[in-house]
C-alpha cells in the first residue's frame, strides 16, 4: 500500500510544517518590544540549506532506482497483452490489434508471472491505469497516439482487476473502463 505510506509521510511533513509556522507566529506575538530576532542568520541559513540538500539528495538516490522504467527490466515476460485505446473504450488482446477494426478479447493473466502490456492509442491521449480488486491504483502508463509504451507488471493476487482511463480524453472519459482477471 504505497499510497497509505505516502499519505502518512505527507501528513507527518504537514504536521511539522504547521507546528513550525505556528510557533514562528507565536514567537512574534510573544516577543518583547526590543528583541532583535534571529542571530547568526547566515550561519543558520547555511546549515538549513545543507541539511535540505542532503535530505533531498538521499530521497532522490533512494527513489530514482525504483522508477517504473527500471523495474522488471532484466526479466523476460511470460505473456504480452496488446492494449489499444479509443474514445471511450479499451481493447485488450493477446494478438496484435488492428487500428482499423480493433477488437479485444477476455483476458486472463496468471499470477506471479511477468506480463508486458503494449499500450497505444488510436485517437487521442488516454491513460491505462490498473486498479487491484480493492480498487487501489497499482500501476499505470499513458497511451499516446503514434507511440507504443511497454508496461511490465507482476500480479501477486488473483482476482478481478479494473482498468480506468487516467488522461482526460473527452466527455466519455469517466465511463472508459475495462476489466481482466488474474488467475
Amino acid at each position: 500500500m504505497q499510497q497509505n505510506s505516502i499519505m502518512l509521510f505527507f501528513m507527518l511533513l504537514v504536521g511539522i510544517g504547521t507546528i513550525f509556522f505556528v510557533s514562528i507566529f507565536m514567537s512574534s506575538l510573544n516577543a518583547d518590544k526590543d528583541s532583535t530576532g534571529v542571530k547568526n542568520l547566515l550561519k543558520k541559513r547555511f546549515w538549513f540549506t545543507l541539511i535540505l540538500i542532503v535530505v533531498l539528495g538521499i530521497f532522490a538516490a533512494a527513489t530514482l532506482p525504483k522508477s517504473p522504467y527500471f523495474t522488471f527490466a532484466n526479466e523476460t515476460p511470460s505473456t504480452v497483452i496488446h492494449v489499444g485505446t479509443m474514445q471511450f473504450s479499451f481493447f485488450l488482446s493477446t494478438k496484435p490489434i488492428d487500428p482499423k477494426s480493433p477488437s479485444g478479447e477476455t483476458i486472463e493473466i496468471p499470477h506471479d508471472q511477468l506480463v508486458e502490456f503494449r499500450v497505444t492509442s488510436f485517437d487521442v491521449n488516454h491513460g491505462f491505469a490498473v486498479y487491484d480488486p480493492s480498487m487501489r491504483l497499482i500501476t499505470q502508463v499513458q497511451a499516446m497516439p503514434g507511440y507504443v509504451n511497454n508496461l511490465r507488471y507482476k500480479f501477486t493476487e488473483p482476482g478481478k482487476y479494473h482498468i480506468f482511463c487516467l488522461e482526460f480524453c473527452g466527455t466519455g472519459h469517466p465511463v472508459m473502463q475495462a476489466t481482466f482477471k488474474v488467475i
Binding site: F72, A73, N74, E75, T120, G146, Y147, V148, N149, N150
Partner: peptide, 15 residues
C-alpha cells in the same frame, strides 16, 4: 538479449 525497451514509435507515421 532481454534488454527492456520501454517504448517505441509506430513506423506508420515517420514524423
Amino acid at each position: 538479449h532481454n534488454v527492456f525497451i520501454p517504448s517505441y514509435r509506430l513506423p506508420t507515421k515517420s514524423n
